[in-house]
Write a protein that binds this DNA or RNA. Structure first.
Lengths: 140, 140
DNA sequence: GTAGATGCAAAACCTTTGCTGTGAT
DNA sequence: ATCACAGCAAAGGTTTTGCATCTAC
């Protein structure tokens, strides 16, 4: 029996029933360093447990997202992408030629977003920022 | 025969074949002040021409988007939302309680986005920024 | 033992497409 | 007369769900 993954530990903390499938999915997500979609997670999990069902993956990532263990993103291809939520917020810069996703954080932009929202008499509760770019040298 | 809508004029300028359906859809979009999805456009167009097909609406908005006459957005509900493209770029602030969408433009944020992209050796070619907020008085 | 999770297949969405007939230029 | 367009229905991709079975607690 393997040591519990970081996400598995979070699930236990939240009192979720830890089935074998959830443990597998938790491990896959904990070990992922990219932004997989459900099908990616399903494929990676299937290598560990070939009998896992994609419906379970869908149900589990939804649960994890609702528990704020995962962040859900939409990078413009048809499917939702997931990553482990971290305390440090970041946004994404997507290389539209290679598909590579760079994470960045910029406090100036964060502050401006709050300021703009306040100007309309509102309080910022969330945002979505994605930058799409091309490599400078490849451009010419 | 009604006067051509702003979008119809743009279509004619680009040499598009102007069918009755396209004229109807162009008119609906020109008169919309919100960010309708395809189904909204279809419903509004159906009031003018009840025989219009939703496939035609899909094909037409895609065409208009590719011609830069429409901007396409994703506000996180499952469907794409459209609005007439304007020369002045803007982003969106969404009231998550009422669903109201406020348009804003902030050159400081735009400049920061370009700066960040440059820092990674890239050139910004597009972005997506949505702020989600709640009314201040409603919050407490 | 029981509430909740899984697997499977069906269905729900949104969107695209093949085909045939129609209409704009 | 062309050639592109419209309508319809079927199919595509992603995600959800009903139901019977199973499993963690």
């Amino acid at each position: 029996m393997t040591a519990p993954s970081r996400i598995e530990r979070l699930c236990i903390d939240r009192g979720m029933k830890m089935t074998g499938q959830r443990r597998t999915i938790a491990r896959v997500l904990s070990e992922s360093e990219d932004h997989p979609n459900v099908d990616d997670v399903y494929k990676r999990a299937s290598k560990i447990d070939s009998k896992i069902s994609i419906a379970t993956v869908y149900r589990t990532v939804r649960l994890l997202e609702e528990s704020n263990i995962l962040d859900k993103h939409d990078f413009g291809d048809g499917s939702a992408r997931y990553e482990e939520a971290t305390d440090s917020h970041h946004d994404h810069l997507i290389d539209i030629q290679s598909g590579e996703v760079i994470e960045f954080h910029n406090e100036e932009i964060e502050a401006l977003q709050r300021k703009i929202t306040e100007q309309y008499g509102m309080t910022l509760v969330g945002h979505r920022l994605e930058l799409f770019g091309v490599q400078k040298d490849k451009k010419k």
